[in-house]
């Protein structure tokens, strides 16, 4: 039962964050807007990963496996963007 309550709380937080990102999109422009919307997206996926995808119950290895690919993508982003920004 306790779990159900916490799951519903997480859902509530997720919906609040959704409202926040939509609101922010009307107020912020350019890099600031992008930073906020991506920040909120990372916050939402963090909540989903931690509570709904059981990372709070798993050991280190599983946590690395779950999040490793996300970190790995940074290589692609960093080098591709570096190329386009320095042409």
């Amino acid at each position: 039962m306790q779990k159900t309550v916490s799951f519903v709380f997480v859902w509530f937080a997720l919906v609040l964050l959704l409202a926040a990102t939509v609101t922010a999109s009307f107020m912020l422009k350019g890099p600031a807007g992008l930073a906020v919307s991506l920040g909120i997206a990372f916050g939402k996926s963090g909540l989903i990963y931690w509570h709904y995808m059981h990372l709070n119950e798993e050991e280190g290895l599983q946590r690395i496996a779950a999040l490793g690919a996300g970190a790995w993508l940074l290589i692609l982003f960093a080098f591709v963007c570096a190329d386009y920004l320095t042409r």
Partner: peptide, 20 residues
């Protein structure tokens, strides 16, 4: 995973990216 750009040295990639 950090070296793929060496296939693009003459393709028009940024010269700074090429150097790295």
């Amino acid at each position: 995973f950090f070296v793929w750009g060496h296939h693009m040295f003459v393709a028009g990639q940024s010269m700074y990216a090429s150097a790295v």
